[in-house]
Design a protein around this nucleic acid. Structure first.
Lengths: 352, 352
DNA sequence: AATATTTTCGGGTACGTACACTATTTACTA
DNA sequence: TAGTAAATAGTGTACGTACCCGAAAATATT
């Protein structure tokens, strides 16, 4: 039986280069203390062998610890949405904890922008390598990002992005395209001269800004394919059921419409109103895989939900930081989530 | 500075139990050579510590090699579908190769059932731990599965399952539900008394059987919600463009219809016919994210594609074998894929 | 030319687990 | 009760990489 001559990895490189493992290691990590000549020789051999380090061994031997922070909204009474990304982050964490990842959570209140800065301050008190941020408030987020840059803290944005700012990666929907898809779907639900109401339900002006991207996409699709359809837009700044009810009541008294498109997860509020007032002729399309929405989907009150994998957004966000710091992979600047269509018939199989 | 007293893992267990690491190791792997008393003591400590082995170290130290086989159709000239699962399998492989996984491919011809057995024979010549199978031909697949059981080879089925057979796991669509979703969608595309044609395009009878599950789901949805819609079913056993054209031509001469639902990926054949004959009023819905289909989706000839993540099916299939053999995880008997709706507006973001 | 300094490199141990091999204890036989 | 086999337990090395520490070689200083 032949003796296995092929040493693996570093050892083999060392053997070929006639140096020790330590020297190879220095070259691999760009550490000083290697003459240019030997460095070049070793680099050539590495390239020649197409050497791929054994990540298992690498992580096992490395005692480095990375600290990451999470800065996202806390789950509110009004919508459970933000629970999903958190869950994804937790799942990812359970997978990589072993490899020296520490995680701290900082949750702010979507209805109170001052809490964003409060939590941000806490983050800067400690020293983190990276942060997962949901940049709900534009100016605050920009400021936060700039401070991170100065401190060499890497940011990953999730759920919505901000123009003119380049984090390590943005992981979330293409909002405009998401609205376009909604338009695409709704086109099939209304007649040639139909009437459509687009509803932004959100308290803070900034997040409304994000909703407006969806709105724009929605309109764009109709402009391209059905210019005759009448589209009206309304923004509601009070998000509780009573307020929404009032607005809807007065609106529907004066208008006849075929469809309502709600630009975020609060579509269930409208659905509840429809159900209680036995409105069944108006089609209803909205966002997000929440239990509150699913029950109305099941009942047929909501026709379609569009979903952008919030759990996976969280999961990918943490894995992205992991890939960047631990695996030293190159990171895609933008990681768009798929734009998924959920109906009564497929929601049970959906993976959020 | 305090000295870190907590040894990790096995060592700590050994210390607490007053035995050597090797003994702990024996208990962990149910190896013989440990007295009942010490085994119980160690088991208790393991439980008490909620010990989780370090998978990195485990895999690094273990030199075990697992051999898996892949038995699926080869990509045909008529449809590129089967390239997708293969790609998923390759991706998964690249991730786990390092951990001692060997992989061999055995591709049969979907248009010739005898090739299935030929390839199967080759598999039995070697000795594999597990196989990924696309059981396109029912009786052959059952026979294959039974032989695997006898030889203690674990099977994972992908893409379609077979009644009365319980592989390690089935990874793929719920075909009936998939058809129901198609019905759900098409409901919006046809009027109250619309006419619908369901088209099965497939050469071998067995795979037609799978298509029929989708067909049944499709009908079920209409029966429940729109009993007045007229649904006719046609099966074409010649899959080339010329043959399909002929059939369509003669059919459409005698029938007026609103929508065609093609139960598999060959919807592009119909789309091509529509385009060449400038048929634009008939809605078209079919299956699978193939370049051949996407071009017609983009052009608006195909309205919806339903997709079941073929790449991920392959990916998950290999990871499932890996989880079973290397990680010794418990495996879900059924892993249904999501049922995704693809349109002109979201296909670019879809992950197959 | 002798010493000091810097640069370059190799030896060795550790990470947590697997497993081959050896040592000890126990049980059994003659 | 010695002798032997079987059951039980321990020692040591390996997996591939990281990194500390000290040795050797090259260069600089006097």
């Amino acid at each position: 039986m032949l003796k296995k001559t092929e040493l693996s990895g570093v050892k083999e490189i060392a053997r070929r280069a006639n140096v020790s493992i330590a020297t190879v290691d220095r070259v691999l990590h760009n550490r000083p203390g290697v003459s240019i000549k030997t460095k070049e020789k070793i680099d050539a051999i590495i390239k020649d062998m197409d050497y791929k380090p054994n990540l298992l061994a690498r992580r096992l031997a490395s005692k480095k610890v990375f600290k990451f922070a999470v800065l996202i909204p806390k789950e509110s009474k009004e919508t459970e949405y933000w629970n999903a990304p958190l869950q994804g982050i937790r799942t990812a964490w359970s997978e990589i904890q072993l490899y020296g990842v520490e995680l701290s959570f900082f949750l702010y209140d979507l209805n109170d922008r001052t809490t964003f800065n409060q939590e941000a301050e806490k983050i800067f008190k400690d020293s983190f390598h990276g942060v997962i941020v949901a940049p709900s408030f534009i100016s605050e987020s920009v400021e936060f990002f700039n401070k991170c840059e100065a401190l060499k803290i890497k940011c990953v944005f999730i759920n919505s992005d901000i123009s003119n700012v380049r984090p390590l990666s943005y992981i979330g929907p293409d909002l405009f395209q998401s609205g376009k898809l909604a338009g695409n779907l709704c086109k099939y639900l209304v007649s040639q001269q139909g009437r459509v109401l687009v509803l932004n339900i959100s308290r803070e002006l900034d997040s409304e800004h994000h909703l407006r991207k969806k709105e724009a996409g929605f309109k764009a699709h109709f402009d391209e394919t059905r210019p005759d359809v009448d589209i009206e837009v309304k923004s509601l700044y009070e998000t509780d059921y009573i307020s929404v009810t009032k607005e809807l009541q007065s609106y529907l008294k004066n208008h006849t419409i075929d469809l309502i498109f709600v630009t975020n997860s609060r579509v269930f509020t409208v659905a509840k109103y429809f159900e209680e007032n036995k409105i069944s002729k108006i089609k209803l399309v909205g966002y997000d895989y929440l239990s509150q929405n699913l029950q109305y989907l099941e009942k047929g009150v909501i026709d379609f939900l569009i979903c952008q994998k919030p759990i996976e957004q969280g999961y990918q966000a943490l894995l992205t930081l992991y890939d960047y710091f631990i695996n030293q992979s190159t990171i895609d600047k933008v990681q768009f989530m798929p734009i998924d269509i959920i109906t009564k018939e497929n929601y049970k199989f959906y993976k959020n």
